[in-house]
Design a protein around this nucleic acid. Structure first.
Length: 469
RNA sequence: GCUCCCAUCGUCUAGCGGCCUAGGACACAGCCCUCUCAAGGCUGCGGCACGGGUUCAAAUCCCGUUGGGAGUGCCA
């Protein structure tokens, strides 16, 4: 075990589940570091109220989506305070015994009053030398030593804290239960953690933890505080107002490769002029020490652009497979049994360059699979507004009955009609498109008709002609 | 209030004293291509927060100012 780095990743202090800020930001570092060496990934929370299977599973699923294997032996998974509570209390008692901590019987209200009277916020060390022993209602507090605490941070360098600015913080509550910071340190020591990688919001609390490591007789781990992700207002991303959970992007049709790649560009950049790099390259080049120091804005538009690139890079077969979940589930706009992979395979090359998110696919191909085509009223109105629309569509319909049914022949028919009537193909295709697909935009029209088939195409043209009057 | 962190195009970033009249990507605008819409190609727009130093030379080092963020719980 010695010599092997063991990393710990801590969640945001505001809670782990769905607090995407720190959570989302950390996924990329987790992944990159996992590829760089062995580590223990531990998702922690001392709040037992969150100890629910779905909570746990949600995290594991999200990690699995981007390639972190929850069954990896180095992934110890979520755990909760209860499992280690005895060790926490024991550590607190040893700290008391060694004089590093003392009991205090002041209530929170009393502390506040004293602080107010003194004009200084925080606990003033009232019970430092009162020699109190353990007892109900008495909290155990750490005796912050004089001097300075230097935190050597892997991404930020040397950060110095004057201990005089750190109050004697609580270790055990009046009811005897340990607080987060103690639990954290004790667990890290027990698990032989060597590297603590977390969001920068933890940096101000780091000297406290480091003093705890020292007092407990251990050498503090390597700290690494990575930047947080912020919203448009430059505020830390939060569950309540921001859309940040990894699962949401998965559900919109972002591919895991694009997600990871995009995430990596937040606070770090690959060498060279392109940001689109495969994960092997990222894993090879990533260094904690080259991580940026400032917070980054999560740009959904750029994520989409990345995803579009990843989608286009796929082979046709890969693309079709990636689309299938969106075409055969309740995400589709038609009953699952109406989907035909063979038909989709034919239209797919035209779809591949037209979507950035997989969730956009169903609406582009629905005309091939729905039983009753819904016509967009505004599009219909516009397409049939011109004088020539109805007569020329009728003419097309006429010739379509005998034309060869392939896109070149169909296009030739429409072009000929257009030339004879002095209507550009760009305009002339509009009524045909709306009649056949229900929309004014979509994949190339003649290919679409070819795949739709003659019978259904004619039927739809007739319906449109009828509707147009 | 106190403590800590941060500061290059709108956004994400390259840059670690001369290669910078600051490079790339997303977004935006225009052009080309074109059966709609995309994709693709080309072009454009746009930035070193400010002020002092140090240096022959500063986006890069130092100090200050301003601005932003976080922490400051018997929360996690």
């Amino acid at each position: 075990m010695s010599g092997t780095p063991r990393y710990r990743f801590a969640p945001s202090p505001t809670g782990y589940f769905h607090v995407g800020g720190a959570r989302t930001a950390l996924y990329n570092w987790i992944l990159a570091l996992q590829s760089n060496g062995i580590f223990v990934l531990r998702i922690e929370d001392t709040d037992e109220s969150r100890n629910e299977p779905q909570w746990t599973q949600g995290i594991i699923d999200a990690l699995a989506w981007i390639g972190i294997d929850g069954s990896d032996p180095h992934f110890e998974g979520p755990y909760f305070q209860s499992a280690y509570a005895a060790a926490h209390v024991a550590a607190a008692e040893s700290l008391f015994a060694s004089g590093h901590a003392y009991y205090c019987d002041l209530t929170s209200e009393q502390i506040q009053e004293r602080a107010k009277a003194a004009g200084k916020p925080g606990y003033d060390g009232y019970s430092r030398d009162r020699g109190l022993t353990a007892g109900p209602g008495r909290a155990l507090r750490f005796r912050v030593p004089p001097g300075t605490t230097v935190v050597n941070d892997e991404v930020r360098g040397r950060v110095e804290f004057d201990n005089a600015t750190i109050e004697d913080f609580a270790l055990l509550r009046g009811n005897g239960t340990p607080v987060f910071i103690l639990a954290n340190v004790v667990d890290d020591i027990t698990m032989n953690i060597t590297h603590v990688v977390r969001a920068e919001e933890h940096l101000p609390n780091t000297p406290k933890q480091q003093m705890l490591w020292d007092a407990l007789g251990h050498t503090a781990p390597v700290w690494a505080h990575v930047p947080v992700l912020v919203n448009e207002q430059r505020k830390k991303l939060s569950k309540r107002r921001d859309k940040v959970a990894l699962e949401q992007y998965r559900d919109e049709g972002v591919t895991p490769e694009a997600m990871v790649n995009y995430l990596m560009t937040l606070g770090w950049a690959p060498t060279g002029d392109t940001e689109i790099v495969d994960f092997a390259t990222i894993a090879k080049d990533f260094r904690l020490s080259s991580v940026n120091h400032s917070s980054a804005f999560f740009d959904i538009k750029k994520l989409s652009a990345f995803n579009g690139e990843y989608l286009r890079k796929m082979t046709l077969e890969q693309f079709v497979s990636a689309c299938e979940p969106w075409l055969t589930s309740d995400k589709a706009l038609w009953p699952a049994e109406r989907f035909d992979r063979g038909i989709f395979l034919r239209i797919a090359p035209h779809i591949q360059t037209r979507v950035a998110l997989l969730s956009e696919v169903p609406a582009m191909v629905d005309f091939l699979f729905v039983a009753d085509l819904a016509i967009d009223a505004a599009a219909f109105e516009k397409a049939f507004a011109a004088e020539w629309a109805r007569p020329l569509l009728r003419a097309m319909r006429e010739q379509f009955t005998t034309a060869d049914w392939n896109h070149e022949a169909l296009k030739a028919v429409v072009e000929t009609i257009g030339a004879a009537n002095d209507v550009k193909l760009g305009k002339l295709q509009a009524p045909l498109r709306v009649a056949a697909t229900g929309r004014s935009v979509g994949p190339p029209l003649f290919e679409s008709l070819e795949i739709l088939g003659r019978d259904e195409s004619l039927r739809r043209i007739d319906a449109a002609l009828l509707r147009a009057g």
